[in-house]
Design a protein around this nucleic acid. Sequence first.
DNA 1: GCCCCGTCAAGAGCACTGCTCACATTCGTG
DNA 2: CACGAATGTGAGCAGTGCTCTTGACGGGGC
Lengths: 246, 246
Amino acid sequence: MPTDDATRTGSAPMGIRARNRAAMEEEILEAGRRHLARDGAAALSLRAVARDLGMVSSALYRYVANRDDLLTLLIVAAYTSLGDAVEEAHGAIPDDDLGGRWDAIAHGLRTWALAHPHEYALVYGSPVPDYDAPSERTTEPGTRVQLLLVRLLADATRSGQLATGEDGGEATDLAERAVGTMVRSEFFEGSGVDARTLVTGLAAWSLVMGTLSTELFEQLGADTVTDKDAYFASMVTIARRLVLSS
Amino acid sequence: MPTDDATRTGSAPMGIRARNRAAMEEEILEAGRRHLARDGAAALSLRAVARDLGMVSSALYRYVANRDDLLTLLIVAAYTSLGDAVEEAHGAIPDDDLGGRWDAIAHGLRTWALAHPHEYALVYGSPVPDYDAPSERTTEPGTRVQLLLVRLLADATRSGQLATGEDGGEATDLAERAVGTMVRSEFFEGSGVDARTLVTGLAAWSLVMGTLSTELFEQLGADTVTDKDAYFASMVTIARRLVLSS
DNA sequence: GCCCCGTCAAGAGCACTGCTCACATTCGTG
DNA sequence: CACGAATGTGAGCAGTGCTCTTGACGGGGC
């Protein structure tokens, strides 16, 4: 009498291993995403995923090194899904409509986040305890949206559509200290973006992310905000005016 | 031969229950906070804190209904600790120095958050799976900082130190739709704060929270920001200028 | 055609978790 | 002082991640 996972009732009728490895990995990711959507990252259970796939938990280790590895797979999947969604929304706007591009990025982010709240929490929420994301696998897919932002900043700089900050040298000094080396890295090579602009752009981004996190993580209180779409739109507008003059 | 928690070696020599209930609850909270700081909320283990206290896990249920209840206790403790810290920082600034008060609130928040990262994540990070915070116990302590902000907005309105937004009626309409009923609630009774101002204030707050979450949850990338203090100060300044003219 | 070895799944087992319950002990109060 | 309420104990159930041994299968080399 089996004492482990074999308590599952039936199904998985024929030739599990007929499905080749790639398909199996795809199926695991799919099941993982289902469980993520239902229970969240911290409660993600390898055994449950295995049960879902009609196999015993230990068999899953043929495809996935451990729970952290599955988490990593889900993280890059989330980043990819998010990147695709935001890039698509952004791509529908003409290049010279900078304000429209900003709005498209922000609202695209929110639309995706509302559709995939747990995946949003996975990548932008509090880190999962005892899990370190391997940066060599996650940073590149996790930078795609930020890349759009930087391009937007560069285009705004080039076309002279940056918002005019009236403040003096104090803020510029602070900005230089904060992101000076970053703005002079090869990443910003020839973009014309200066530290002051980058900091403002990051502020706009933080404003949007903070708003979104507050909404998704339900810190708004129940009846404070009546129209969440209008609320987010207000925030996006304020953030846009921080960066762009148009 | 015991199979459960009794594998602890010794100690707890005399009269555990000599310490009265209140002291015991305090001790449980203390130990819970230690474990929270080490392992994070999602990994918080009742058995581990019981072990820490030199008793068997089941005994802990005399004081705490279940894991969620312990979590709730830790949440209100975190909110209280945060509220105390921020209120103290804010209290050191003269009432008429509105900009100073804003900075004190923001930097007070960050100082506390850096000192208690896991508690910050507990209250402002992604929600713990399968846990619903009982709002009747958490909202009141969780609103203290926001209360300071609202008072600041009211004072700025009263003394005419609000930043002058140049944008037209569109943004005002949006703001009205977003927080209209909130700004007319008894909470804002007689404060003079209008929807447009409230939205701007919430934007400033979201900007700060977004910045802080990004820093604490390590989404900044390793070598992007060189001077995190300067970075945060930049953000606080930008946020302040969103709201205040001074 | 056969055999050998790599791939894959199964299941047992270890250490941990939350939670419940029957039992024992002890304290404080009537 | 005695009794009842309060408190601590340990066993037990169901679940978790992960490891290890065992066994079934099947394709490539001879």
